[in-house]
Nucleic acid binder design. Structure first.
Length: 264
DNA sequence: ATGGCCGTTTTGAACGGA
């Protein structure tokens, strides 16, 4: 089973690109972020024509998160628990082929001297709580999405340029690490431990793509039970180089069917 | 990484993104 994640920066603007990548990348599951539309405006029929059903949370203009799947979807859940007053559409979850999967659009948090940064940190603490519940099941769990966190300096073309930014702030990195410390693994790093700098986002401005001035902020986090099934993970740079591209590019991992139960 | 973009919206200047 191939599962993937892509921040499309408006599903309306990126519909053709998303449909093309389903053919090209052949994901069984694709987590989408930054839909920038309400649920009713999501192009369900176009994806259903390709055999994908969707779990969606949307809002006007901003945010939005979805899971597309060509395998049956069980127990969908919309919204990150922990704050009923939070109206931002950033989280959906569902079970597919025995794997609990989340599509995450974590708040950016800039500028850090505004309410946006504490909101990001609070949101990350809520994600930690949910990640802990899911890890405690012992099941295969995959938390995919745009984390808006550059985990280490190796994940950035020029760490000095991002010093003080919400994506590299120690508080953001600490919250991210606290999720790893629950027993989650960075799928890309696990599959490609010796890979040189690899990015998932390049700004539209200042020729960032042409200069490979990128950052790695889209992540697939797997519990041990899921990692045991992983056979590969990579970043597909191709969509970023095309006309009318999203500023993010897809990341994916492959999970084999569940291994047999070990016997003593 | 800020000169340079892009998508959205009470359609045209402002906001959010990272």
């Amino acid at each position: 089973m191939r599962i993937a994640s892509w921040n499309v920066n408006s599903i309306k603007a990126r519909l053709d690109a998303a449909l093309a990548w389903l053919d090209e990348g052949q994901p069984d599951v694709l987590a989408l972020q930054e839909l920038k539309c309400v649920e009713d405006a999501f192009p369900r029929l176009e994806f259903e024509a390709k055999g994908y059903k969707a779990v969606i949370t949307g809002q006007k203009t901003y945010n939005g998160s979805a899971i597309l799947s060509r395998l049956p979807i069980e127990d969908p859940m919309v919204g990150l628990p922990g704050d009923d007053s939070d109206e931002q559409a950033r989280y959906v979850e569902a079970t597919i082929n025995g794997v609990r999967i989340a599509s995450i659009y974590l708040p950016n948090g800039n500028p850090v001297d505004t309410e946006k940064f504490p909101y990001k940190i609070r949101w990350m603490k809520r994600l930690y709580a949910r990640a802990a519940e899911l890890a405690a099941t012992g099941d295969a769990v995959a938390l995919l999405g745009d984390y808006n966190v550059i985990p280490t300096d190796e994940d950035c073309y020029d760490p000095r340029a991002w010093d003080g930014d919400a994506l590299t702030r120690p508080e953001s990195r600490a919250e991210y690490r606290s999720i790893l410390n629950l027993g989650y693994y960075d799928a890309f790093r696990a599959a490609k431990p010796n890979a040189p700098a690899a990015y998932t986002f390049w700004d539209y401005q200042a020729g960032a793509w042409q200069k490979d001035n990128g950052i790695r902020i889209d992540h697939v986090l797997l519990t041990g039970a899921a990692l045991d099934r992983m056979t590969d993970s990579d970043i597909d740079r191709r969509p970023r180089g095309r006309p009318k591209a999203s500023d993010h590019t897809p990341i994916w991992c492959d999970l084999a069917d569940a291994p047999p139960t070990p016997r003593l």
